[in-house]
Design a protein around this nucleic acid. Sequence first.
DNA 1: CGAGATGTTCGGCT
DNA 2: AAGCCGAACATCTC
Length: 267
Amino acid sequence: MPELAEVEFYRKEWDPGLGHKVLRVHANTGARVYRDDASPSAIAPALTGRIFRASHAHGKNLLFAFSGGLWLGGHLGMSGKLLAKVADYPPERHDHLVLFFRHVSLVFSDYRMFGRLHLHRSKIEPEWWRALPPAILSPQFSADLVQSSLAKRARSPIKAALLDQSLFPGIGNWMADEILWRCGHYPGTFCSTLTKPEIRELWKTTRRISRDAVRIIGSDWSDPPETWLFNHRWKKGHLCPRCRTPLARDEIAGRTTCWCPKCQGEH
DNA sequence: CGAGATGTTCGGCT
DNA sequence: AAGCCGAACATCTC
């Protein structure tokens, strides 16, 4: 499920634990979500007794800071969720990590297990976190950066480029479709065919949609306005909210893609 | 019951 | 040799 706005929503789900001490930890260490960690059995002892200090989201990545230079990194994959439950909440089958506080239990749940969790010890933020590419809503995410990166992917469909986390961190399947629909590009268009003004427009739209999605979905999981493709893209027989043409669906760049044949070219 | 799902990685190919 | 593509991962839902 999660793209940058959903990740931001889930990050805040754990806020009730901020400033409090982890009294006990449940870790389903056999779960695949710990595949990055050499010793998953160390997770529970390491987190027990720490104060939960802060949380950060960057694209689809999460970072939780604990006292004593301990960090919990995470990714929600396809089906990961972060939840706040009652104190002494009994873990369920897909709850791979539960942090028990006096007044609340913070849960990482992921039934498909494409998500991941990993622990780090360092004074400052871990190396992998500092190496992440410029966030879409940061000043470093410039039109020039997008321009030069797309030039390297000339023979790549623009949809594939938008899904590339090293350039568009946090953009996933629905946001990529939303951006291309707003800009009027057929998702299979090669990057090399976009003009400089079109790339600038793509950059601007990417920022606008990211900002709006974080505001709307990231705050309380509200649905975006009916004027967005978002609300129409899945159901069969749905119409383009702009021109009422029946929407098309097909696999492009390895993912199911929805677009308007009229607004986005004849395909 | 088969297909498909808001994601990433790896291995093979050009 | 960088970059592209398909397959694999695991479970639930329609």
